[in-house]
Design a protein around this nucleic acid. Structure first.
Lengths: 233, 233
DNA sequence: ACAATTATTATGTGCATACATATAAAGATT
DNA sequence: AATCTTTATATGTATGCACATAATAATTGT
């Protein structure tokens, strides 16, 4: 086997992955403990620990104190999605970016927004609707609610030069958020804004963010027809 | 400030996050280097390193050797999606799981499958179509192509007791894969299998996996109407 | 037989030190 | 002024050691 010393964690990671993939270590099987592996690989236990931890974070190993480390049986795969600012996503593809506001006014939010944002009910809410354009063509429609108690300054923002999303990213940090991906036919007005046929299947992202339990914003993004969000495993 | 010593990396992580969120360290700003922070927090540099690394992995800090660490300006948020085995997803919700195969035969794949899987063209391919049911109701339709050169044994699998996906998870490890999320109206036959109205917007996942450049399988999963895939930020 | 207690063990983490490596910045050379 | 070379520096990582912690296994007591 590998009697050469694997003395960096990337090499150890690769060797362990190879043993998993080659089924030398089968799903469910207990693998040797860190000390033994360190001895076999000719490195420190901390190095093995770093490698195994990285693999476990990816879901391919299950680790438990005292019980040891075993190969995951039904590896719940973890895919990491990058959620960029729309402008950067468009410009990264060498397209020109533009942004149009349809409506921006203080309104009472509907019940579902009230519930997802966990509002008290007395917050003044800004309802902001816009479209991001790529090369002049509609790319994604945004329907956003903003808690003005949390970010009152947004009323002074100039949405001709910056999108609500980018203003918030720059000015309203959040500690946690929910995000959901789904398919929608969209209502007629959103379809129209996107230049999509009414009833066409569109990819949607719903995202709500909080700063220490204070709701900041909730947005529904409906993408143009044919949009795919991709990543690697 | 905090003259009490933060001598574990979780505490350091929390303190750094708090400084970012409170804008004590603003977006784009260079933060003190690891040694200085270690001194301030009264811990080892390795501990600070561990904390900053964890934050950077989440996209909130940008780190570069010699240049130092700065608060990310447009934090590309990273969301981690758990991609479970369908059966477990259904059973986790306390629903009963069932699985029905519609068709399973060796066929010539269409061009798009040929391209996404990067096939040579001479591989024998198994075309496997099925539906997963939750409490007897269609949950997700699966349209799968399997490279029999890579996993010939699958012809002996008994798909009455185990789904193709679970068989593959257990018997055909992969080293890398692509995954894409989208919305589709589905074709009429898929809609029918799902008990969905034709033309209804459905959430879809396309996933292709390889084992060291050998294509294993490519699958299109079309979920029932209203399905959402969710996670936290 | 069962419950409560204690011991054991594998992972989790912290620390001091050393060296590796990328790269920005300064300096030398053309 | 432009390019190449050197230097300085912040992060990246390996190591040996120590101790913390969770959870299983063994033991004890009823």
């Amino acid at each position: 086997m590998s009697s050469v010393s694997l003395s960096n964690w990337k090499a150890v990671e690769a060797e362990v992955l190879s043993r998993i993939h080659s089924r030398q270590w089968e799903p469910g099987q207990l693998i040797p403990n860190e000390s033994d592996l360190a001895e076999e690989f000719g490195c420190a236990r901390a190095t093995v620990n770093r490698a195994l931890r990285a693999i476990a974070e990816n879901g391919l190993l299950d680790r438990k104190r005292k019980a040891g480390t075993r190969v995951a049986t039904n590896p719940v795969r973890r895919a990491t999605l990058n959620i960029p600012v729309i402008r950067e996503e468009i410009e990264a593809g060498n397209h020109s970016y533009a942004y149009a506001v349809f409506s921006s006014k203080i309104e009472e939010p509907p019940l579902n927004i009230h519930a997802t944002m966990r509002l008290n009910g007395d917050e003044p809410m800004l309802h902001h609707q816009s479209v991001h354009l790529s090369d002049g063509k509609p790319y994604v429609a945004s329907d956003r609610w903003i808690n003005l108690d949390a970010v009152p300054d947004i009323l002074n923002a100039d949405f001709k030069s910056i999108s609500a999303n980018e203003w918030l990213v720059a000015n309203a940090p959040f500690t946690n958020g929910d995000i959901a991906f789904s398919a929608t036919s969209g209502d007629a007005s959103i379809a129209e804004r996107l230049g999509a046929k009414s009833g066409e299947a569109l990819f949607a992202i719903d995202r709500t963010t909080w700063n220490n339990d204070i709701a900041i914003t909730s947005v529904k993004l409906v993408f143009h027809s044919g949009y795919q969000m991709r990543t690697v495993l």
